Simulated scan of single mutants.
Amino acid sequence: MTAFADVAVTAHVVVDHPSAVHHAATLAKDAARAAGLAEATVERAAVLTTELAENLLRHAVEGAMYVQRHGEKGGLDIIAADRGPGIASPDRAMADGYSTTGTLGSGMGAAQRLADELTLRTLPGVGTLICARFHAPGTAPAATDLGLVCLPLRGEELCGDSAAVVDAPGGRTAAVVDGLGHGAEAAGASAEAVRVFRENPHGPLPELLMTMDRALRGSRGAAVSLLRLRPGAVEHCGVGNVRLLLVGHDGIAARDTGQPGVVGWNMPRPRARTLPMPEDSAAVLHSDGIAPRWADSAPPFLLGLPPRLLAAALGHGHRSARDDATALVSGAARRNT
């Protein structure tokens, strides 16, 4: 199964004005059609986006919507994120007719019915994250333990970052690529690196990086981080400043950064490193558009988020204003029992 290959740019709408609600719904409809969803599902995605965005506008502080396609005709995530005040009674909020303002608003109960999957986490005083997932017909659903945002520099349409994930019997292999700089040349370099990744995602990671290095010569070049997850362990091989962190409920279990250099320019001979990875942890790969200090004092609420929400939380709360930003989060590989 391939998930999140051919990554599309994450659409992002700050919900600070009534017009943002319509804008978010339009982006969701466009993305749903591009993801190959049936027209009835396209309409469901638009209605759900409207509901979530209106809730942000009425109730939330610093609310935003994120729309992320899983890949070419592979499904869709619609994510609402805010910085508070949080939902005091999330179980009650999921019931039809519940409202904190006395309005009719079927609210989260309607959202749960509209989505194929819905994940919600909230903490009063901190904020709320909601991910509604839609599956494309005739395709395998995206893995439940996988999350991604791929955000261009504000004001840019193209993103110089990219990512891809492939699942196979031998384990999950993931790539996050940060083309140097931003704009069209950076996007071209990262797209070429992902093309090479897709051609042989199951080979030895150092060899895959060397193939990328040859393919990117003459381009802008890129930082690249490759990850292979197997039960109980993760293999990491990277060049440049894409970071790996292993995250558990009780803190950051491990950190690793790629070797100095640029893939396509002055890449050293790559080396792979294997780290132990508990089953209840998650691997986070992110470009330097996500401020690395997020991990220095990460609160338990953030560390305990499921992958699809943790990726969004990093993009929402820790994104740099000066660069493209990508966060890919994968759960640990499971042992067959």
Rank of each mutant, 00 (worst) to 15 (best):
F4I: 08
D6V: 12
T10W: 09
V13N: 08
V15R: 09
D16A: 15
D16G: 13
A20V: 00
A20G: 13
L27N: 08
D30W: 02
A31H: 14
A31D: 10
R33W: 09
A34E: 15
A34N: 15
T41K: 15
R44A: 12
A45W: 07
L52C: 10
E54N: 14
L57H: 12
L57E: 00
A60L: 10
E62I: 02
A64N: 05
Y66T: 02
Y66E: 09
V67I: 15
R69Y: 13
R69T: 12
R69P: 09
H70N: 15
G71P: 05
G74I: 00
G74H: 11
L76V: 12
P85N: 03
G86F: 01
I87G: 10
A88T: 14
A88Q: 07
P90R: 01
D91I: 03
D91Q: 14
M94E: 11
S99I: 12
M108T: 02
G109Y: 07
G109V: 09
G109S: 07
E117G: 06
V126N: 14
I130G: 03
I130Q: 09
A132K: 05
F134G: 11
G138R: 04
A142I: 14
L146M: 13
L148S: 08
L151Y: 03
L151S: 03
G155Q: 12
C159T: 08
C159V: 13
A163H: 00
A174W: 06
V177R: 06
D178R: 07
L180A: 10
G181K: 04
G183P: 09
G188L: 09
A193N: 00
R195A: 15
R195C: 02
R198Y: 00
P201A: 04
H202G: 11
P204I: 10
L205W: 07
L205D: 10
L208Q: 14
L209N: 04
M210N: 03
M210V: 14
T211I: 07
R217I: 06
G218K: 03
G218S: 10
R228A: 08
L229H: 05
L229D: 07
L229Y: 06
A233N: 05
C237S: 09
G240T: 00
R243F: 04
V247I: 14
D250F: 05
G251R: 13
R255M: 06
M267G: 03
M267C: 15
M267R: 00
R271I: 10
R271H: 12
A272D: 13
R273G: 00
E279R: 11
S281K: 04
S281I: 01
A283H: 08
S287L: 00
I290Q: 05
P292K: 04
W294H: 04
W294V: 05
D296V: 08
G304K: 02
P307T: 09
R308H: 11
L309H: 14
L310W: 06
L314T: 03
G317P: 14
A321N: 13
R322G: 13
T326V: 05
G331V: 01
G331H: 11
